[in-house]
Design a protein around this nucleic acid. Structure first.
Lengths: 237, 237
DNA sequence: CTATGACCAGATGTTTACATTTGGTCACGG
DNA sequence: CCGTGACCAAATGTAAACATCTGGTCATAG
């Protein structure tokens, strides 16, 4: 009963969306700089210019705060690459999508750290994260490829499950390679994405497909994924 | 002076190549099962059916032993995939090579652990390993692609350096994916390699190239790599 | 009513002392 | 000679006692 009251308190108080965003902004900044283990609630409060107690008007615990941060960042990342895809006439092709998702990822370092399971950033949080996101997202990918094949945008002779596995493999290489080859030896992001796109395009695509149909498929898949993981739909949530 | 004598002792005694191989076999088995940190010299001696002292007739230290083991395993792996490449009429194509290197890798778990920088297997040894193997092997790859282009086996419009980076990325994904997606959800190795080959083939290759010329290029590159890392040429070394 | 920051219990890190393991040696047996 | 395995110093692991830090609370000020 008392707990219910507290939860309501929290809801009432989180009717301060501007401050809520400031908290998450501060947390994001510190998380990327110092990592989860070294980012304390006090640090976040100070960075956000408020008191420690105020944070607990928004979140019941440190863990909940970081969970919300990750959700927000992944949702932002998703919204951003969808925007780019929508704006690009070729955005509805398999490669258009790959291109935009990869191009945007480094701009969302929290999302990148989650996808890469980066221990330096996530620290102890790694154990609390759903260990099956990749498996799950591979399954979404497989379904996506199935529909893209049906729409004549992807070669029909490919097994969707295996192709999804290979695409996951490449994504994992993309986010993991920095640990093997120093960033200073990497070509520009643009070069990487261009070469990778060219490779995937000639390997997987049917030329001249209907990009608009592809966009609708991707919208549906992203929507399903967002629901599955309960991603926030807008910033004021 | 005394140290010199000891080194000679070691050389004289390592004239027991059969026992030397038994030692490394035992070390390999234990390394893969229990990891570097938990594999002691006594364990290795017991597994090899000899005494602790005998091991020091072959190796000056534990570290030297494992270093030699890694060299042997990588050399064996290299010899094996070269054999497969030589035996395959299409082995001299870019994709033939990729196919055989990937196909053989899981059969050489020590080599695989090194390439994946697997912490569970390598433990503390990770710090002692050359951190630049991947960078170095990417450079070999770039040189390889340059020559393959000159020989008309790889598309000429690709930048070798960037392409080598992308190929490294895929290799890294290949050895790392198990940490992200459980092995039980992976398609068979054959399916993986086939799909990956198809992808790379249509993306990078010039069809109908001279496979024999490719083999010679690969021989040269592997030879250069072996010399750079001082890999043993035969088992009795 | 909101927001603060001093406060506290429990978690986390550090030091010290002690116990165990293990890499490496070498006197000795075969 | 070669090869062994008891032996030892040094490294590693464990436990306890202590110090510090930090997530979360709440009396109080505004």
């Amino acid at each position: 009963m008392e707990e219910l009251e507290k939860a309501e308190d929290r809801k009432r108080n989180s009717n301060n969306p501007e401050r809520n965003q400031r908290i998450l902004d501060a947390a994001a900044k510190l998380l990327v700089r110092f990592g989860y283990d070294k980012t304390t609630i006090s640090d976040i409060a100070q960075e956000a210019g408020i008191s420690k107690g105020a944070i607990y008007l928004h979140y019941a615990s440190r863990e909940e705060l970081f969970q919300a941060l990750i959700m927000r960042e992944i949702a932002r990342y998703g919204r951003k690459f969808m925007e780019e895809i929508e704006a690009d006439p070729e955005g509805g092709t398999l490669i258009g999508m790959y291109r935009h998702t990869l191009n945007q990822l480094p701009r969302y370092p929290v999302a990148q750290a989650v996808l890469a399971r980066d221990k330096r950033v996530l620290g102890d949080m790694l154990r609390k994260l759903d260990p099956n996101i990749y498996l799950s997202s591979m399954n979404f990918r497989a379904e996506f490829i199935r529909r893209m094949q049906a729409a004549g945008l992807v070669r029909n002779d490919l097994n969707p499950q295996i192709t999804a596995y290979i695409l996951s493999m490449i994504s994992i290489g993309f986010v993991t390679i920095d640990e093997f080859i120093g960033k200073e030896h990497a070509p520009s992001l643009e070069d990487q994405v261009n070469t990778l796109s060219a490779l995937l395009s000639s390997g997987l695509e049917v030329p001249g497909g209907n990009s608009e149909a592809g966009k609708q498929i991707y919208r549906d898949i992203i929507e399903a994924f967002s629901q599955r993981y309960d991603l926030p739909t807008d910033e004021t949530e």
